[in-house]
Amino acid sequence: MLDVLMHFCPGCSHGTIHKLIAEVIDEMGMESNAIGITPVGCAVLAYNYIDIDWVQAAHGRACAVATAVKRLNPEKMVFTYQGDGDLAAIGAGETIHAANRGDNIVVIYVNNAVYGMTGGQMAPTTLLGMKTATTPQGRDAKLHGFPFKAGELISQLDGVCYFTRQSVHTPAAVRRAKKALRRAFDNSMEGKGLSFVEFVATCSSGWKLSPVEANRWMDENMMPFYPLSKE
């Protein structure tokens, strides 16, 4: 990690997830061998915080970018870091096909059920009834369809060797999440296929809640619909 101020809002999960990734890369001794791909969204500037080589991808296309980075540089450890708007809406196609090809990359998917950077609009993952800037009356399935379980969809594909859903809202969850990240990165270097690590995450600004309230709201509303993996 670089010693700089983060642009993330108070209570946001990104900072903790960034730190876990940096720790895992460091513990694996892969600082000089890792290439990360940032999305469009709140994590676009992840390259300002984790001290490795980075490429910033067009909105939703991180998995296509990662496919070529890895195939042309098979000795490198390659991962994408994407939000739910980036991965599950505009980038659903690229994500599904990278997963189906079994590209040896890690996809880190941060799902906070909302578009954070553009000001809290509905994402594919927005829960039914949830109020956002573009669903002021709450998400209505008749109008907007249903919340999208990208992780479950991806996990069905033959090229995926590991799917896990984690969070970082308690110390125990943070410890489990770090283990999951390590396993995913190990998989990618062992050539096992694509590893998909989903994080159920908070967006206190987008949800218009305090950090403490956001954690509680996530526990009560997000977790039942996006259940965490046991390990």
Partner: peptide
């Protein structure tokens, strides 16, 4: 996807 693979 192709042009973004090219980008990568």
């Amino acid at each position: 996807a192709a042009i973004n693979m090219i980008y990568g």
